[in-house]
Amino acid sequence: MAAAKQLPGPQDLSDDEREALEALLFSLADDEFVIAERYTEWQVRAPTIESDISVANIAQDELGHARLYYDLLEDFGYDEPDLIWERDADEWRHSTLCELPFEEGDWADYVVRSFLFDEAEYIRLQALEGSSYPRLADRIGKIMAEEKYHREHARSWLERLCEDDESRARMQDAVDRLMPHALTLFAPTDEDIEARIDDLGIRTENLLTMREEWLDEVVPRLESVGLHVEEAQLPEQYDVHHADFDMPDELGRDQSHTDAWFDLYDEFTKSYRELGRHEAAKIMKDPDDE
């Protein structure tokens, strides 16, 4: 693909350009925010003190990434309450993988979820490094560095928990449950807008290509540790067969969500509502000054 021309700064975008950017940024920011919300649930409940500390670390990285993406949306005149605290639950665009609840103690859920997410995240970030929107492209390097570590972490847990039959069975359950939702990471917000994101060069790979790339990465890895992916065929056959994957009813990206999301939303907005807040405290430096 020929390099697209650079987009101007936030104030000089056309309506179409801005709409495309917003759809992409909301998908990115909401994914990070919501998956972090689930990760923090492991704090003070992880299997060991050491794993507790690392899941906290990863959750904070993801929250930090969400912060960077939401900050880019603030360029368009939104503030944090518009973006998080007062935005209706049915306007969020994260993949349903991020929002699903898990059973107490289901560490396999954490491992599989983060594995599926981090592999996707890595591919998605590669497609943003050369984004035509400089404000976005500039932030990818920092995020990418942290995501590389997350990917290593998830891969090593995946291998370790598949060594014995009992824990591998738990891992298989998690794969069966999470895989369809992970596919929604590559679902479109809206077909037209996704095409525009690609045409404008905001992203250098389209969703379908990224999904193929992701499947080529995750399916062989899962199979190499003795896990099975329903409906998946050998890698070279994906082109033919990927359409056979069952997608869940709720895709997330198109603002449809599972019931669990609405409960989660009520929980994390509880204090904000109880206190009758209208603003959200900023206590860190602006990302542009960091």
């Binding site: 923090t40 003190i49 500390i53 906290a56 929250l63 206190l275």
Partner: peptide
């Protein structure tokens, strides 16, 4: 730990998660 979830701002949430991590 429940207040990581219930923090009323993104940066407070980050700080609460970090504090909890420090305590561990």
């Amino acid at each position: 730990r429940p207040f990581i979830r219930q923090a009323p701002s993104l940066e407070r949430k980050l700080a609460f998660s970090a504090k909890t991590q420090d305590e561990l």
